[in-house]
Design a protein around this nucleic acid. Structure first.
Lengths: 110, 110
DNA sequence: TTGACAGGCAACCATTCAGTTGCCTAATTT
DNA sequence: AAATTAGGCAACTGAATGGTTGCCTGTCAA
């Protein structure tokens, strides 16, 4: 996948608190089924299923079939890549940008 | 703002390549006007303006008025907070999660 | 002082998104 | 064999998104 498209997919997947909650559950315990993931979610199984599908297609969740169950696991790689290939660029210039912003907002015209 | 609501706002703001392009421009050079930001963007000024408004309300961009111009600056804090308060949790358990995932996908049933 | 320029506001449009319901298949359990 | 359980598919709905156009208000420069 093209780099920008992958950023789109991952950031979009993360831009929903239900999906972030699913990731948090899988981070603390892998191998959960869809029914497991539905626990404490105040929406239908189908709604959760759609969210999981979005996480899957962004590569954030990988699955394995076992009989009639589908076990879900966190794939940490996309988040790592976002950190390394996108966020780190902003972290690098962070203090300089902050100082620049402060100067600008204090009205200095340079 | 509530923590989850702020994550929503920032991730949603980042989930669009036009808005990420605006941030990239402001990262390399602050103090740009809306007209500056429209350069190389293949859409109307109003469309860009809406994107900038979303970045502003997520706190990623701060502005200062100067006469009839509005100067835009990158605010690096929200990205830093996402990194520190959200991503770092995933980075910490990264290698363990990766090993777990690999085992699971190789069919081990434990 | 008149025109050009930076920006804001509002209405509209098509598409996507988050959720629902209803039904279906396949694997288990009893 | 029958009932239950895990999951998938499709159609529908309302709201949010990303874009457009038209017009309006300040500010600056000729």
């Amino acid at each position: 996948m093209e780099a920008e498209a992958e950023l789109d997919a991952v950031f979009k997947a993360l831009a929903d608190r239900t999906r972030r909650a699913v990731l948090d559950r899988l981070r603390e315990r892998g191998g959960l089924t869809l029914v497991d993931l539905c626990e404490h979610m105040e929406m239908s199984r189908q709604a959760v299923s759609k969210h999981v599908a979005i996480l899957e297609s962004a590569g954030l969740v990988a699955t394995r079939r076992s009989g009639r169950e589908k076990l879900h696991y966190l794939n940490p790689i996309p988040i790592h890549e976002i950190q390394e290939r996108w966020i780190s660029r902003y972290e690098r210039g962070r203090l300089a940008a902050l100082a620049n912003l402060k100067n600008a907002l204090e009205g200095r015209n340079d």
